[in-house]
């Protein structure tokens, strides 16, 4: 039993229908382990490419990087057979409708990974009129992999991070594993393509804004929250030195090491040149 699981046990959710004598029982954590192990080791991604990032995803799937080494060998074309949706590319307003539909069709437990800048937060095309600024506006995202595009190794790192996340989940915590709760979970409402994309969860907000607009009030754009501008002075060089002291030890050591190496190289070089009689 790792200390991590002990921690998680303390946050027992009362909603979880656990018999009193089972509360805090070690069986739960062992069960979690088995559940987690089986979920993480047979994570089947959906064969689902959106844009440029999908090319790197396919690169990751092919022989050089080969994510089947992590139990992901079968990319399923149907959402019904997949556990992981890798949102690999720019999510457009036109495409978010099928994406949400696909997500709803995936059986639980299901995970979403936002691959690349676009899927995470809009990416370079964020300002475009047909671009959704991040898939997390609609779906819950488990792992974000930054990069444009993330290289296959970066994606693999993200996949390992997802596995680690699963490893840390506890059956006793319903926030971690909502699908083991009681009753079916709510499907995500499917967006509507009106004059612009409409998130059904925002209907009220839209209606209120429309009323405001009818009343001639400013509409659509909101003032930015005031920035807390620090009027702090630029630290002097001495103060900076103090700042530099705060860096952690390993970092410091690394820096020193690098500096030393550089000096050594220079010294050798000079010696060699001197020997050559330059």
């Amino acid at each position: 039993m790792s200390s991590k699981e002990l921690d998680l046990r303390q946050v027992h959710d009362t909603e979880f229908p656990l018999p009193a004598e089972m509360q805090g029982n070690v069986a739960i954590t062992s069960l979690s382990k088995i559940y987690n192990w089986s979920r993480r080791s047979s994570m089947w991604p959906m064969l689902f490419g959106l844009a440029c990032c999908a090319i790197e995803m396919i690169g990751t799937a092919s022989s050089r990087f080969d994510f089947s080494r992590f139990g992901m060998e079968v990319m399923r074309a149907t959402p019904r057979q997949s556990d992981l949706m890798i949102v690999s590319g720019t999510v457009t307003k036109k495409m978010i409708v099928p994406i949400v539909r696909l997500y709803n069709q995936m059986p639980e437990p299901k995970y979403v990974m936002a691959m690349g800048a676009c899927a995470s937060g809009g990416g370079p095309f964020k300002e475009g009129y047909n671009v959704v600024s991040g898939i997390d506006k609609y779906l819950p995202v488990d792992v974000y992999v930054p990069g444009c595009p993330p290289t296959p190794q970066a994606l693999l790192y993200g996949l390992i991070a997802l596995q680690k996340k699963i490893d840390g989940q506890s059956l006793a915590n319903l926030d971690d594993v909502p699908w083991y709760g009681v009753g079916p979970s709510e499907p995500t409402p499917i967006p509507i393509l009106g004059p612009d994309i409409i998130d059904p969860r925002q209907m009220d907000l839209i209606r209120r804004q429309a009323e405001l607009a009818a009343a001639g009030k400013p509409y659509g754009v909101r003032e930015l929250p005031p920035v807390v501008k620090t009027t702090k002075a630029i630290p002097s060089k001495a103060a900076k030195a103090a700042v530099a002291e705060v860096v952690d030890e390993g970092e410091l050591k690394r820096r020193e090491e690098a500096a030393r190496r550089r000096q050594a190289v220079l010294a050798r070089k000079r010696a060699r040149d001197a020997a050559k009689g330059v």
């Binding site: 936002a114 995470s120 937060g121 991040g134 997390d136 995202v141 488990d142 792992v143 974000y144 992999v145 930054p146 990069g147 993330p150 290289t151 190794q153 970066a154 790192y157 993200g158 991070a161 996340k165």
Partner: peptide, 9 residues
């Protein structure tokens, strides 16, 4: 350093 995946952006 490309190893930057995170759980919360």
């Amino acid at each position: 350093d490309y190893e930057m995946a995170s759980y919360d952006r």
